[in-house]
Amino acid sequence: MVDASMRAGLFISPWRHRELLFSMVQREVIGRYRGSIMGLLWSLLNPLFMLLVYTFVFSMMFKLRWPQGSGSKAEFALLVFAGLLVFNVFSECVTRAPNLIIANTNYVKKVVFPLEILPWVVLGSVLFHTLANLSIWLVFHLIFFGLPPLTALLLPAILLPLILFSMGVSWLLASLGVYLRDVSQVVGVVTSALMFVSAIFYPASAFPDAYQQLLHLNPLTQVIEQTRDVLFWGVLPDLFAWSCSLLFASAVAWLGFVWFQNTRKGFADVL
């Protein structure tokens, strides 16, 4: 049963516990590189290395090109990187979600601790690294193509449905991971497969016509395409498509949150 406090919690909980949330995000980001010589610099080097690998494999070995572009390797690299920015937000959130409660069992025993903010902590850490990756993208765009189009300012709005969708799935998986330990293995396989059917290394228009509708059933496809449109091509997003995506993502976030709040009562017994 969904009471008024639960309905409000989706929006109020992260704000009410914002100081705790910020502190945990900060600790998450710093702790990820604690003990390493290069520290936070790895947040820039890791995506840069992967960008070079993907660019070499797909643009040089497989000779892939964007139909509407100039065909340069720099262009291909930036378009792929834009897709990876989107995918990595979703991928890291959902792959960590199944073990999120299990890895924080000490919080489960604390009645006053707001367990529902744990997925927000992961998201905060992911968005920090996304900003670092975006800075790399902007530097390379400045070097090879100059200033990005003004439509790039719309990127936060484009990513909003992705963030809500990722949170909803994270709450669902965080709860399921407590009761079904195999969930993390399944999620790992699914996200790996999803990477190659999300129009990251190719435009959606390059997908065979017979499977176009199937490709667009993937909620990541539209966000990736719209991200490229605003960041690189200077094309305004389709307002109707964006609104539908936002409504769908909001519903997923709401359902995931309700599921989490209704199942959290059994966490202590299982753990």
Rank of each mutant, 00 (worst) to 15 (best):
Val2His: 08
Leu127His: 12
Leu79Ser: 06
Ser70Phe: 12
Gln261Glu: 12
Val169Pro: 02
Lys63Met: 12
Val230Pro: 14
Asp229Phe: 05
Ala174Asp: 01
Val252Gln: 03
Leu100Tyr: 04
Val89Arg: 02
Met6His: 07
Phe56Tyr: 12
Ile136Gly: 00
Pro156Glu: 05
Asp229Trp: 07
Ser198Trp: 01
Ala103Ser: 15
Met1Asn: 06
Ile117Gly: 02
Pro156Gln: 10
Arg32Pro: 05
Val25Met: 15
Ile117Pro: 01
Gly35Gln: 07
Pro114His: 01
Phe257Gly: 00
Leu159Pro: 14
Gly39Met: 10
Ala199Met: 00
Leu10Cys: 03
Leu78Trp: 14
Ala210Met: 14
Ser170Glu: 14
Leu48Ser: 06
Ile200Cys: 01
Phe58Cys: 09
Ala174Thr: 10
Leu100Lys: 07
Trp242Val: 03
Ile117Arg: 04
Ser5Val: 15
Phe145Asn: 05
Ser205His: 07
Thr55Ala: 06
Leu231Ala: 09
Ile200Gly: 00
His129Pro: 03
Phe201Trp: 06
Ser36Tyr: 07
Gly256Ser: 06
Leu51Ser: 08
Phe11Glu: 03
Phe201Met: 12
Leu194Asp: 05
Leu51Gln: 06
Leu173Phe: 15
Val230Gln: 09
Ile143Cys: 05
Leu255Asp: 05
Phe90Ala: 02
Leu147His: 11
Ser184Ile: 09
Val252Cys: 03
Ile102Leu: 10
Phe144His: 04
Asp269Glu: 14
Leu154Trp: 09
Leu100Cys: 04
Arg7Ile: 15
Asn46Glu: 15
Ile136Gln: 00
Arg16His: 14
Ala253Gly: 03
Phe140Trp: 12
Ile102Tyr: 13
Lys109Asp: 10
Ala241Ile: 12
Leu173Ile: 09
Leu100Met: 07
Leu255Tyr: 07
Val2Ser: 09
His17Lys: 09
Val29Pro: 01
